[in-house]
Amino acid sequence: MTDSRLPTGVALITLILLAGVPLSLYYAGHIFWLDIFTRAVVLAIAAASLNLMLGFAGLASFGHAAYLGIGAYAVGVPAYYETYGGGGMIASYSGWWHLGLALGASALFAAVTGAISLRTRGIHFIMITMAFGQMLFYLLVSIDEYGADDGMTVDLTSQFSHVDLSDPVMLFGICYGSLLLLLLLQYRLKHSHFGRILAAIKQNENRTRALGVNTFYYKLTAYVLAGVICAYAGVLMANFSTFISPGMIEWTRSGELMFMVILGGTAWVFGPVVGAMIFVLLEYFLAGLTVYWHLPFGLLLILTVLLFRGGLGGMLQRIGATRGEGQS
């Protein structure tokens, strides 16, 4: 066993910084930073949900941003109907209704597409999840009523009785709390029976099946769970940015989510959080420097893959391991 104190320490410090920095800057008058960090936290939730498939079960879904879109449109569409009429019983400002719609629709979409794509493995799985993501993208682009590819603004955030999501500090608190809960859940899940089976599937699916495990149902459960959690992130995203468009689910978005997870390291429950933070900060600083910010970003992606095996989590673990050897 390797020494896991170093990664755990980094995780705790990051979590403290993730809450402390934006809030102290916000109360010091730099309101803008709270936006950046809220975005980072929401993306961290989405990336962590992807890690549930990628890191836990080795399922490389390249269409995960679709669930962000499902969550976001589950806020935007009912609010749109409530404002402008029509839509029948879908129309509502109620946050619980938005949540229910997001979770239900994403679970349905995940169950159907998962049942089809999980029949395949490896490269087929990657391409098929990508294709299903694009299917949803083109569907949204073709619906003129929801603004087609221009998207639409969310005029009023989801309404809850005691919580006002249009208050930025409140919204940040909800996002941050959700992230903490999710990480806790994932940590428990990883060391549960379910998590162990997923890890076994990741290592060798045929052997796991030979042990009498119905691997398909375990994979499908992980697939649906990841989708539902990501749709939740989509609900938060719509309330945060108050603007939704098909652009948020294009396959390049899925690639970015994937990048966050890989950058942070898949073997580490906390990896996606670090990855999402680095991604959002990089995006902000590079975009501020030059219009060509995708160039250093793309190069970084290539270098991460070529030189940085196992992501930051893997690197920390290696450093921790050599330290442990030195001490003993």
């Binding site: 990628l54 490269i123 390049t252 060509y292 910010w293 160039l295 970003f297 992606l301």
Partner: peptide, 22 residues
Amino acid sequence: DHLDQLLATFGLILVADTLVHW
């Protein structure tokens, strides 16, 4: 593995798009 290939070639797309833009 395929995932590494996917990400690295995705990085190549970003680089190519930006170079063409430039």
